Simulated assay, not measured.
Amino acid sequence: MSDNSKPFYQLTPDAVIDAVESLGYLSDGRILALNSYENRVYQVGLDEREPLIAKFYRPGRWTDAQILEEHQFCFELAEQELPVVAPLCNKQGDSLFHFGAYRFSLYPRRGGRAPELGDPDHLYRLGHTLGRIHLVGAMHPFKARPVLDIQSYGRDSIELIARDFIPSSLREAYTSLTADLLAGIEQCYRDAGNVRQIRVHGDCHGGNILWRDDLPNFVDFDDARMAPAIQDLWMLLTGDDRQQQQLQLSEVIEGYNEFADFDPRELHLVEALRTLRMLNYSAWLARRWEDPAFPHNFPWFNTERYWGEHVLQLREQLSALREPPLQLL
């Protein structure tokens, strides 16, 4: 554990309240830790006001410039009256704040429930809203934030796991299997051709969408980066049945095309992006394993059983990579 990261792990309720009050708010002393591991996120009660959400950024993950690009993207979306939860600014227009060793931002509290991904109307509205988001996202690129690519999500993840985490009994199988997976991913990208990279949410699963007032409200743009539009669409598909996924996809794309033109070539990337997410997820857990919150909340990780199941899942995913892409109905 680096000295630079220790204060993040030792963040106390008093420090959270002091940081919020440093911006002129008066806390009522109530604080609730929310379900977040990459960063630390708290609901902080205020005296005679609605609670705020305080997000403390993990050291070393993003630079200030990268965080501010995420904020600016949210501001652009909010200016277009899109249902996103953007950070709050002080009177000087600042949205990223420093308190001692910590960097943090504040957000309004937004309630809601998860979308029903089996409901065609919800899927259509999700596609409709994402089409508007991507219309803004395509206006200009991120300059500081990275691109979702095979190197960072795939090769780098595999290298870390093979070197430091996979049990010796599975290393040969893992190395051979991941070489085949990389080849399959690269073929999917070749089949898709030169698709456009735009600013996307990046982690568009149901947990980052709050259904409220008959609209999807998008939260947590922490993983925003440059990627094909399909990155924000494929995670809305549920179940293993191909026909079901194609019906879901058609509802999403019908709504999406009301505002933005979806490029069908990107369908070649669905399983490639799913594979990269699986590889990156294991590497994310591995990279964070020195954070005491991770062994506590993910006790099943880095066990012989976990890695055996991971290899089996990757074998199944290799078969999915080799299937024809989904089609629009």
Rank of each mutant, 00 (worst) to 15 (best):
D261M: 14
L77I: 09
P228T: 03
S22P: 03
Q92T: 15
E271R: 04
S169M: 12
Y124A: 11
P324E: 10
G24L: 04
G202D: 05
A78M: 10
H98L: 11
Y153R: 09
L148H: 14
R58I: 06
D28E: 10
V311S: 08
I209E: 01
G202Q: 04
H268N: 14
A78E: 13
R30H: 14
K55M: 08
H134P: 00
I161V: 12
L96H: 02
S250D: 13
R265P: 08
Y256R: 03
L318R: 08
F142M: 07
G239F: 01
G154R: 00
L82D: 03
E186M: 10
F97G: 01
V219A: 10
D261A: 15
G118I: 12
R132T: 05
V219K: 04
R277W: 07
R132Q: 15
R190V: 13
S36D: 15
L210R: 02
L181I: 13
L318Q: 07
R163G: 11
R315H: 14
A229T: 03
R145T: 02
K91V: 15
L249W: 03
V44Q: 00
S319D: 15
P324K: 08
L321C: 08
N39I: 06
P264Q: 07
Y189R: 08
L170K: 09
W307N: 05
T178M: 05
D240V: 12
I198E: 01
P299M: 12
D94T: 10
A162S: 14
R145D: 01
D47K: 11
P108G: 04
T129Q: 01
L273S: 00
R132K: 15
F221E: 04
D14M: 11
L182D: 05
A283I: 03
L88P: 00
V270K: 03
V85H: 02
E79P: 05
N90G: 10
V252P: 00
Y189L: 09
G184S: 07
S22D: 05
H122G: 06
Y57T: 05
Y174G: 02
A19T: 04
N35R: 14
L273W: 00
P299Y: 11
S36H: 12
G207S: 09
M139F: 11
R125N: 11
L267H: 01
L267W: 05
R199Y: 03
F142K: 05
P51F: 04
P141Y: 05
G184M: 02
H71G: 03
E79V: 10
R212Q: 14
Q244R: 13
T129C: 08
P216D: 06
E323V: 08
H98S: 15
P108T: 12
A286W: 01
V85P: 00
F104W: 03
L52F: 06
Q43R: 15
F8Q: 05
R212T: 13
A227Q: 04
V200P: 01
L269G: 03
D119W: 05
H71D: 01
R113E: 15
V20I: 12
S5G: 08
N208G: 02
L273V: 00
G184T: 05
L126W: 00
N297Y: 15
D203C: 07
W300P: 08
D149L: 07
Y124Q: 09
P115M: 05
Y281C: 10
S27E: 06
S5A: 15
E304S: 15
L312Q: 14
R277N: 09
